[in-house]
């Protein structure tokens, strides 16, 4: 058992830094799934006599204009941000993987058409693209995730295609054909694993970008509506007390940064360097 574990660890190159890199995201997921474990306070119900209180031992991150506990709201808000970011990345991967593979494996015409399309989309800044989609489908938490996911498709497609083209040109792919493997055998055994592994690591990096994009759009007011605890929205609401209650904007921002950094760390941890 012990040796089996050791062999598994060796095969997948599991090292302490790698495990540490996964930790922050695991923490985030735990908080998102069971925020109640970390805070007993209700994120929605405020105490009218505890309005705009500075951070203290009872309210670690202070309270807002309705007397709601900011720490509790941040804990409960993590689900919305995290699930939306994951949904966004999942949507973009779902569309981009087939497109990228087709552009990398297909003939000149198909590949040229996909790339030209991607270039056209990439010319529009992602935020403008997401905002346009939102104009089309309306605001809301899921819509934001959808908009952000679609906006990232072009970038992902290009990235996957670049990887596929790189792997296709390697000597080991040529060698695989040489020992009698068919085109699809080579695609399945060598091209897909070797091109998608770095692409997936970059996808986790994009999880951080998605978190930022989502909170930006929520900050602009197109995400869920109050009183939902959402980090970007909390910062918008906190702006009215900019000069007096710094904790209303500072802590949700730190939560966003923590999540984005956690995604960065995760992508470094799962990166495969063959």
């Amino acid at each position: 058992m012990n040796t089996a574990l050791a062999r598994w660890r060796q095969r997948h190159d599991v090292t302490l830094p790698r495990l540490l890199g996964v930790l922050p995201v695991l923490m985030l997921v735990l908080v998102a799934l069971c925020p109640g474990l970390f805070t007993p306070l209700d994120p929605l119900a405020g105490q009218t006599d505890e309005r705009l209180m500075a951070p203290s031992a009872t309210h670690w991150f202070g309270t807002d204009q309705f007397g709601r506990d900011v720490f509790s709201r941040i804990m409960h808000g993590s689900f919305s941000t995290l699930s939306a970011a994951m949904l966004a990345v999942a949507i973009s991967l779902l569309v981009a993987i087939p497109l990228g593979l087709a552009a990398g494996l297909g003939g000149r015409r198909l590949s040229g058409a996909i790339l030209a399309g991607a270039d056209m989309v990439l010319a529009i800044p992602e935020l403008f693209l997401s905002l346009s989609i939102i104009t089309l489908i309306g605001p809301g938490a899921t819509h934001v995730a959808f908009a952000v996911g679609i906006s990232q498709v072009a970038g992902f497609t290009r990235m996957i295609r670049t990887e596929v083209v790189r792997v296709r040109a390697t000597e080991y792919v040529e060698a695989a054909f040489g020992i009698g493997s068919t085109f699809w055998q080579v695609v399945w055994r060598h091209i897909v694993p070797n091109s998608l592994a770095p692409a997936l690591s970059l996808a986790t990096l994009r999880l951080g970008t998605a978190i930022l994009a989502i909170s930006t759009i929520c900050f602009l007011g197109y995400g869920p509506s109050p009183p939902t605890p959402e980090w970007g929205l909390m910062i918008t609401e906190g702006r009215n007390y900019l000069a007096t209650a710094w904790w209303l904007t500072t802590f949700p921002g730190l939560a966003i940064i923590f999540s984005a950094w956690a995604a960065t760390l995760l992508s470094r941890a799962i990166r495969m360097d063959p």
């Binding site: 910062i235 702006r239 900019l242 904007t249 500072t250 921002g253 950094w261």
Partner: peptide, 22 residues
Amino acid sequence: PGLASGIPVFWLEIVAIQLVSF
């Protein structure tokens, strides 16, 4: 730089206002 790109710009600006101006 990777960490810096994880900071939301609106938050950074709010903090800048709070610290630098206020």
